[in-house]
């Protein structure tokens, strides 16, 4: 049986009918065409599917669409405004904070959420916050450097 839900995604409201087991990551990717959010491990560990839901980072692979009913979701596509990258996005480019790019949307969304509540995090705070976002290419130094570079700017 399908259930009606309303989601606000990147500021735009969507009304959908979904099976109770349909995952937010699948709604974003298949129903709304927002393929920036990636699905990696599918068990809430790797962080590739990180999105903001009512300003809090969550694993969209563990979030049911029905449970997101009425919530405001922000994906990586919703960060840049008028094609202008956020400082945290530009910093990932400038500091080589990615290689293959699969983990990057999740990294960037998680880093933005950190800078929103803590504009000048210490390295320890960055590591603590970001430990749930795995990267299999870069190692983590470039990611930490990117976040440090963006810190203090308007993110």
């Amino acid at each position: 049986m399908k259930y009606p839900i309303t989601l606000t995604v990147n500021g735009q409201q969507h009304s959908l009918e979904v099976e109770p087991t349909k995952l937010l990551v699948d709604i974003l990717r298949y129903d709304l065409g927002l393929t920036g959010t990636k699905e990696g491990c599918s068990v809430g560990v790797c962080g590739a599917c990180t999105v903001l839901m009512d300003d809090a980072i969550v694993s969209s692979c563990l979030t049911l669409g029905v449970a997101a009913n009425g919530k405001a979701v922000v994906t990586v596509e919703g960060l840049a405004q008028n094609e202008e990258l956020l400082p945290i996005q530009q910093a990932f480019i400038d500091h080589g904070g990615f290689q293959c790019g699969i983990c990057t949307p999740g990294q960037v969304v998680a880093a933005k959420a950190l800078l929103d509540i803590n504009p000048n995090p210490t390295e320890a705070e960055i590591k603590d916050w970001m430990l749930g976002n795995l990267c299999r290419c870069t190692g983590y130094y470039k990611i930490i450097e990117s976040i440090q570079a963006a810190a203090g700017q308007k993110a």
Binding site: V45, G47, T50, V58, L62, L131
Partner: peptide, 9 residues
């Protein structure tokens, strides 16, 4: 516990 994403939910 796990990660902030999990603890948020």
């Amino acid at each position: 516990v796990a990660t902030i994403r999990i603890r948020n939910a």
